[in-house]
Amino acid sequence: MSRLRSLIEAGDRLVLTGEARTMDAGDLDDFSEKTVEMAEWVDAINATDNPTARAHASNVAIAIAIAQMGAEPVLQVVCRDKNRLACQADVVGAALHGVENVCCLTGDDVTAGDEPQACRVFDLDGPQLVSVVDGLSRGRYLSGRSTGRPLDLLVGAVENPGAPPLEYRAERAALKIGAGARFLQLQICFLPERLEAFVSALDRAGLCQQAAILPTIVLLRGTRGLKFVHDRVPGVIVPPETIARIEAAQDESEAAYALALEQAREALALPGVRGLHLTDFRHDGALSRLCEDLRIPTREERYADAYRSPLAV
């Protein structure tokens, strides 16, 4: 059983996941070097699947690289680029290398990336992929053919608490949880009231006990990053007043860090939130600083004393 799964199933333990940096040409030492800081803090690291519709080293290759450096991978699988055969083959192939966590996404459209001419696949959608991977976990391909033995996976998904139709987002999350998702890494949300309404709807429905809810915190260097997220990440808006606030600060980088810290504190204070999903675009030690400022011990320290919640410290 994966470490992430045992933490989630324990019910009251803090859960931290993170997003691995994308890799292009290079070698595994480069990758380890870029990932070692994150590995010190988070329980598991996502091997992304062509994020924002740009080609990079594949999800399966990165997941194996994460496992080889002694960290625990989460294989991200996106419906945009591969049909149902290829998605299943990726999951089963990665499992052969010990990758036991899978996060299922519908995925940004090809028009969000640098190859808008590409064919969009979407043979499955996000909720269907969750159900199919849950089937693999139980030992059956979608066709009904046996995988030989159950893959025994931890299946998760993503939901965007900030995109319309807002009141329907919790229902869509419920659909994914019903299909087998045991964790939800939420899309980054710069509107705290939307995040709160979403988590509270899940909590009222008793769904936060069925799946670990992990809001995303993104570490950016300043307004350039915020504007990029606003302009280029589909379904995410950064309010102009937030950008203006960072722009007006004497030290933009420090203000951007303070924004992330504030978002992390607010997210962890929401009833029903189990932890955070961290994305670091700064690569300047801000990730360690964030965890320290939240008074979250390192991963090893957390395991040593069955650490529960940062609010209890």
């Binding site: 519908t106 940004d108 459209d109 969009r120 959608d125 996000g126 909720p127 995109a163 329907y168 379904g235």
Partner: peptide, 27 residues
């Protein structure tokens, strides 16, 4: 739906309710 989704909207819906892929079309 340009992504032919059968189980609800993707996370890319724009603030004004327009489609991620076709900004002139309502999701």
């Amino acid at each position: 739906c340009p992504k032919t989704l059968r189980n609800g909207p993707c996370g890319g819906v724009r603030e004004d309710g327009a489609c991620e892929v076709k900004p002139d079309m309502r999701c």
